[in-house]
Computed example of a mutant assay.
Amino acid sequence: MAKKEEVLDPDTLALIQWCTEVEGFLVAGGATLAQAQEHIEDEVEWFTDQFYDGLTPEQAAKEALA
């Protein structure tokens, strides 16, 4: 039996893309890729709020690194 592929809604896809961009700015700010990914996972609610509040990925990364 084939596994049914999960379809994500456009908002979720946009959030994932945004977090991927934040990740890059966190790495540019001195974090390793693993550290950036772990931080986003640990603080997913905070990052989600920043996304819906309209922060750019760069702004969110700067806030996270502050």
Rank of each mutant, 00 (worst) to 15 (best):
W18I: 02
L65K: 06
L15W: 04
L55A: 09
T12I: 08
E38W: 02
P57S: 07
D42Y: 03
A61K: 03
Q59L: 06
P10A: 14
D49K: 11
V22F: 00
K62M: 09
K3H: 14
G54H: 04
A2V: 10
L8Q: 12
G29L: 07
T12L: 08
E58Q: 11
L55S: 13
E43S: 15
A31D: 04
A2Q: 03
K62W: 07
A2K: 14
F51I: 10
H39W: 05
K62G: 00
Q59N: 02
G54Q: 09
E63T: 12
A28C: 08
A66H: 02
C19N: 06
E63P: 01
P10E: 14
Q37F: 02
D9V: 05
A31I: 00
D11N: 13
E45F: 15
K4R: 12
T12E: 09
L55K: 14
D49W: 07
E41V: 08
A64V: 02
I40A: 05
D53Q: 13
A60K: 02
V22E: 01
Y52G: 02
E6N: 05
E5N: 11
E21C: 01
E43P: 01
T56R: 04
E21N: 13
D49N: 14
Y52P: 04
C19T: 03
L65V: 11
E63N: 14
G24D: 12
C19Y: 00
A60C: 08
L13A: 14
T12V: 07
E38G: 06
L8N: 02
L8W: 06
T32K: 07
A28D: 13
M1S: 12
A60N: 03
A31T: 07
A61I: 05
K3R: 14
T20N: 13
E38T: 06
Q17D: 12
D42E: 13
E21W: 00
H39C: 07
D49Y: 10
G54K: 07
P57E: 12
G54W: 06
H39I: 00
L33H: 10
E23T: 13
I40R: 15
Q50K: 15
Q17A: 13
A66G: 15
Q35E: 15
T56P: 11
I40E: 07
P57D: 04
G30P: 08
Q17K: 11
W46S: 08
D53L: 15
D53F: 09
E45P: 03
E6A: 11
E43G: 02
W46D: 04
I40F: 07
T32L: 10
K62Y: 02
F25N: 05
P57T: 06
L55R: 08
V27C: 03
V22S: 01
T20S: 15
W18S: 00
Q59E: 15
E38S: 02
D53V: 03
F25P: 02
